[in-house]
Design a protein around this nucleic acid. Structure first.
Length: 118
DNA sequence: CGGGTGACTTTAC
DNA sequence: CGTAAAGCCACCC
């Protein structure tokens, strides 16, 4: 659908791997309210299980897209590693708590809130 | 082609 | 819980 979309306004990068991007987009948008998933799962579903970093990279490039609930994407431990990339360092957590997600320290309880794409 | 970087993961100490 | 290192793949210079 989208080719060469300006995924990042500040830093418009040329998207060469559109297929991977598209899948990440699709998966992230499917995350239900009050649920979270991990970079590794997204990477695996998108066909690059060995490169969870690419997921973070993709999300960063698409961070300005409001239709993408990137706050529902956490790392393997349930930590909000990308919180510093939000408007404020606390915004990510607040968004999740507002959806009913309970934190244990700085982590999400993945046993209860982990969602896997099908 | 090489070097640097990264919203990751895993293992090791 | 902390840091280190290796593996990983794509982007940029």
């Amino acid at each position: 659908m989208n080719n060469k979309v300006e995924y990042s306004k500040k830093n418009p990068i040329s998207i060469k791997n559109e297929d991977f991007f598209n899948k990440v987009y699709q998966i992230v948008r499917q995350i239900p309210y009050g649920k979270v998933t991990t970079y590794g799962i997204i990477a695996e579903t998108a066909g690059m299980k060995s490169s969870a970093r690419m997921v973070g990279w993709a999300l960063n490039a698409a961070a300005y897209d409001k239709t993408m609930p990137c706050h529902r994407v956490v790392n393997r431990n349930g930590e909000l590693t990308g919180k510093m990339y939000f408007a404020t360092p606390t915004l990510m957590r607040e968004l999740l708590e507002n959806e009913g997600v309970v934190f244990i320290g700085d982590r999400v309880d993945l046993k209860k809130y982990l969602w896997k794409p099908r």
